[in-house]
Each structure stands twice: as C-alpha cells, then as structure tokens.
C-alpha cells in the first residue's frame, strides 16, 4: 500500500471531527481525499486547479478556528509559497499531506517530482516536517496530526511501499526510532529509503560490519539526543533520503552533529539535480538511491573514521 492511500483511509477515520475541512485542487482521486469527500461532502472544498487560492483560503479558514487538511501533489503545494509563509508566520492549524513526493511520480518527470520540498519546509519557521516510511507509519502520523499544534508538512508517496512496521506503531514528533543497534556506524534514513537501508544493513552484516539503523521520520523537530548518541557510540553516520542532499535529512543531521559532536558523515540522496521521466526503479538506480550505494557509503565513512 502507498502512504497516500494510508493517509486517505486514516483521514476518513479522524474526519468525524466537525472542525476538520479538507482542501483539494482537482487531484482528490490521486491524493485519496476522494474518500473523505464521499462521506463528508460539506466539509470538502475543491478549488479546481488553483493552489495559491487554496492556501490563501486555508489561512482564512484556520483564522476562523477550523482545522485545515490540504492534500495535493507536493510540487503544487510549493506553487503557493507566498501563502505558505503566512501559514507559517501565523502558526496556523494547516496540515499538509503532500502526495507524489520525491521521485514517486516517476513517469510524469521533473515537473511533477520534488527533490527540495523537505528543505523548503524545514526553512519555514513553525512548520514541522514528517516523512513516513510506510503505510502503517503514514496512518499513525495522520492520526497523531490532530494532536500536533501548528502547521505540518507530511511527505507522502505515489508509489507502493513495502510494509515495514506492525500495526500499533507509535509516532512521537521529534523522536527517531532505532530499527536495530550497531557498533561500527549508524545509518539514519526515512521515507522510501528506510526499506532500502534495511537491505543495506543485511548486506553489510555479511561482511561483518555492524550497522545500526535509525528511522528519522520526524525531520523537524529532529531527535538531537538520538543523533548524538549514535555518533558517540559509533563515530560515523550515513544519511539516506529520497531528496536533494542539500537541506533535507542529511542537512538536518549534520547541523546537529557539527554543533554537538562532529563525526564523518556520508550522504545518500539526490545530488543537486532535478528528476526526469522513467520508471521508479530506473530513477532510484540512476540517482543512486540503492542499497548498494548505501553500503558503499558506509564503507567510505568507515575509512574516514579515525
């Protein structure tokens, strides 16, 4: 199941709250908010293809005490940057669940993909940024979102992702999860890169390398304590994300490390370029979002370790 589908289902569950309104810009079939629309049509607003108008109206709805859930392709969320700044500045109850993020809108090409969205939302004051790794986590995050104060950006995928977590998973904003401990190095990953990192850990284990793995779905706020602990215990970190290596998870992790406990870090991510059209598997290979590349980054960082 994709994370957008999990969100669509969970939204129906939490949608009984009469203060929730769901905003769409002609893409509800793709974002899966169409399920909410069927049940609560009076609290579902379609703006047509008008993203700036959508987020402008969101400001007014949130001023008036409503909880706004907006779901569009992540790239079209960015179209409304000016309005997003007001949402951020006024710390409004606007929850953005952006589908088709990263490269997952693979064949549509660069115009429908995002490599920079996490960086943008990290830089916006008051916004919280969450990148769920599978449908279970997306479901939990949707459920939790009601309790989080202020604006949040949740990054969802178009594509199917393998299920990693068991039902009943807990999510806490600002907390990372240790998937497994390790003594040589820690990989810190999120989103679609988590399941790929799990594979890399297995491959490296065969070579006798003890690799710890952390799921860092909460990119902002980020779990400083856990990052420092991982750095102290192993002295080397690899980050892995389906995003530009500039300003995303890797950036967030190294901001913490350079201040508190500098250690060598290698970054797996998209190297300052846009995406393009191809199948998702081809794109992940082309941009080095593979377990092989994570494994070779682990070997590289181990060499740099003093």
């Amino acid at each position: 199941m994709s994370t957008r589908e999990a969100f669509g289902k969970a939204l129906v569950r939490i949608g009984s709250d009469p203060s929730i309104v769901v905003l769409d810009a002609d893409v509800s079939g793709s974002t899966k908010t169409s399920q909410f629309r069927k049940i609560y049509p009076q609290r579902f607003i379609n703006f047509g293809i008008a993203e700036e108008n959508l987020f402008g109206t969101a400001v007014g709805l949130a001023y008036s005490g409503l909880k706004v859930y907006a779901s569009l392709y992540s790239v079209f969320v960015l179209k409304a940057y000016d309005q997003l700044r007001i949402i951020a500045h006024d710390n409004l109850e606007v929850k953005i669940f952006a589908s088709h993020s990263g490269l997952t809108n693979s064949s549509d090409g660069w115009s429908h993909q995002t490599v920079e969205d996490v960086a943008v939302f990290r830089a916006l004051p008051n916004f919280k940024v969450i990148v769920p790794a599978d449908a279970v986590e997306a479901d939990t995050v949707t459920e939790e979102s009601l309790k989080i104060k202020g604006p949040i950006y949740v990054r969802l995928s178009r594509s199917e992702s393998p299920i990693i977590f068991e039902k009943g998973l807990r999510f806490e904003l600002g907390k990372g999860n240790i998937m497994n401990d390790g003594s040589d190095v820690y990989i810190i990953a999120n989103g679609n890169m988590l399941s790929i990192a799990i594979k890399a850990v297995e491959e490296l284990k065969k070579d006798g390398i003890s690799v710890g793995l952390i799921n860092m779905s909460s990119v902002k706020p980020i779990d400083e304590e856990l990052i420092i602990k991982a750095a102290k215990s192993t002295g080397a970190i690899v980050t892995a994300e389906e995003h530009s290596v500039i300003g995303g998870l890797g950036g967030a992790v190294t901001e913490v490390l350079s201040k508190h406990y500098p250690v060598p870090v290698e970054f797996v991510g998209i190297n300052d370029s846009f995406g393009q059209s191809a199948s998702l598997e081809e794109l992940f290979r082309f941009y080095g979002l593979t377990s092989e590349n994570i494994a070779s980054s682990v070997r590289k960082v181990l060499k740099r370790k003093k």
Partner: peptide, 27 residues
C-alpha cells in the same frame, strides 16, 4: 517517458525541436 529520452512526460524547452517552453505545472 523513457530514461534519458528527450520525450519527457512534460515539455522541456528545446528550441531546436520547436518546444518553446518548459511546462507541466499549469497556469
């Protein structure tokens, strides 16, 4: 829509091929 193809899913500016603008984001 194939990897590396000039025939991307949405137009990319290429005046040598009469593609006059990069579009895909409507408006």
């Amino acid at each position: 829509r194939k990897l590396g193809s000039p025939l991307q899913g949405h137009p990319e500016w290429n005046p040598d091929m009469m593609i006059e603008a990069t579009t895909g984001s409507l408006g």
